[in-house]
Design a protein around this nucleic acid. Sequence first.
DNA 1: CAGGATACTAAATGCCCGTTCAGTCTTCTG
DNA 2: CAGAAGACTGAACGGGCATTTAGTATCCTG
Lengths: 202, 202
Amino acid sequence: MTRRAAIRDAATRLFAEHGPERVTLKQIADAAGVSAPLVVHHFGSKDGLKQVVDDHVGRVFDDLFAEFSEHPELLAAPAGGASLAELLTRHLPPDSPVPAYLRRLLLSGAPEGYRLFRRWYELSLGFTVAMHEAGVLRPGTDPVALTVFLMADDLATILLRDHFADVTGVDPLSAEGLARWGEQALSICRHGFLVDNEEGTE
Amino acid sequence: MTRRAAIRDAATRLFAEHGPERVTLKQIADAAGVSAPLVVHHFGSKDGLKQVVDDHVGRVFDDLFAEFSEHPELLAAPAGGASLAELLTRHLPPDSPVPAYLRRLLLSGAPEGYRLFRRWYELSLGFTVAMHEAGVLRPGTDPVALTVFLMADDLATILLRDHFADVTGVDPLSAEGLARWGEQALSICRHGFLVDNEEGTE
DNA sequence: CAGGATACTAAATGCCCGTTCAGTCTTCTG
DNA sequence: CAGAAGACTGAACGGGCATTTAGTATCCTG
């Protein structure tokens, strides 16, 4: 691996973990085994590096989305709804900094974050619309509203993973969590969770 | 309002908007109409100020949760599920920095963020369990899994509000968004969204 | 009203950190 | 193999920022 790539990767991990503001060029350089000025030499400035990392992470998702567009069966897996979060977790090594970086990207207001979210949305919407046209959805379902609903749930699992793990004792993206979660989610997708109080009166 | 409180409020707004790392004491002081050293005089250090703001925002939520615990009917509103996000939005002035601050609190890994999440979870779980015991939930529903499901959706609406607004053109926490959203959500709570393919075979 | 505490400020301090400089080493290219 | 271009480093620089200092005004309290 080229030194340039080593710097980029070290920065990705450190940015994801502590946020770019808290990370110094020296820390990045040390983690990559180089000197601080070399970082500037390769990326122009700290800001330049940040942008390169943003783009790079964006590209990881592009690849994931592209792969999924070509092989939608990857997803049709356990749960009824489209869980890109699950797919992402399976796709990346367990210690990947990408999920944590995604958090920052979505919540920092960075342009790459908005681009990424939009692509995610369009992919999800396409999937929902396809289900709609295939007649798998209950009549009267609004595909846009449903997409928002499903995406919110999906992304929250990534964004709040640590909190859910802390509170329930189960990492929602571990095998155990996915099982327990997926079963319930599928049931909700099919029937909802409320007793249908109109059944008796109709 | 005491100057101390003015500083605290200015800091809350600026921290929420740009993140504590990007905000200087001078900016806070200017926004509050005081000098920078006065901030140190009242809060010891920038870090001290950050902690006070964390606690203060935490207390806002404590109050909200307490009020809700005493008057659960506040919530039983439109949607079937418990939308604390909606309640929060109604409760705060439209330009309140609290929702944006909540984002940072939950995603920065700050201890106050974990405390806050836990209280939110316990409140939600209590509500779900109550529904369970009242027999409103479909048999076989796991209250914990359901709580996780509902909270994820609820919190994502706050955390990703800007992104959803950007992509759909509708702020999900505006009156229009809540209407469109709530209707769909209620339907999902009742029946799910998938055509029940077991109906025909059973 | 004395005088101590507290609120407050302008100016000074010192550190951290991104960046630049000057120079060496390595690697291509003709 | 010459010699130019790029990779790379240690040392210096300079700006920004939190914090300290020293001193003034304001407010309590007896």
